[in-house]
Amino acid sequence: MKNLLEIKDLHAKIGDKEILKGINLTIKQGEVHAIMGRNGSGKSTLSAVLAGNENYIVTQGSIQFTDQKGTTYNLLEMSPEERSWAGVFLGFQYPVEIPGVTNVNFMKTAVNEHRKQRGLEALSAAEYLKMMREKMAIVQMDPSFSSRGVNVGFSGGEKKRNEIFQMAMLNPSLAILDETDSGLDVDALRIVANGVNRLKTKDNAFVVITHYQRLLDYIVPDIVHILYKGKIVKTAGKELALEIEQKGYDEFE
């Protein structure tokens, strides 16, 4: 299987504080990676840097991304929207509320911008609606959410379902899910995880960032990484997640 993402010696800071201190990570098509670590280990920074959040400054290293057509990009030179068009998706830990912009308008604009980049015409209202209903069903989202402001007044679970719905609409080749399990009860967790599993193919890949092993019962990873103080300190199979659940992160102190 082809490499989708190759991160080499990645260093990043916010303000004067260096958070990522030399990350190396390769992700291939069809793989599910889990990145685990304590608060402050750099998990969310890594996802923000991958999506192109300008609050974080990359001081060293490279990120290469290869899209479905086999074109390789230097991700660090791309704007957040260009990364999205190339096939990178970030599921936010704290999805942002955008009052006044309806979910339907938001996603329609996003889908049509993706289509424009591929030289396709904008979807008609009917085509969009059909697609939206299909994808909403994947996460059991009520169609009434489409006319509400993006994430406005959504519960924690509804926000996370909305993230997975958006992912389904955009069909990325690499999805990074930043603590998608936080704030979810067991039922919502199952719905979100089922959504992810249904979207998994042999061509795409997922990076699941989490504190807890719980989510990994539902989204089973091929590879588990432990992030500690800005570096990946251990990489193993899915059994590593169970080990962490029992022993904690103390052994990496």
Binding site: G52, E81, R83, F89, P95, A110
Partner: peptide, 9 residues
């Protein structure tokens, strides 16, 4: 940033 991360320029 949220909107741009979804491919909205």
């Amino acid at each position: 940033f949220y909107m741009r991360s979804r491919g909205i320029s």
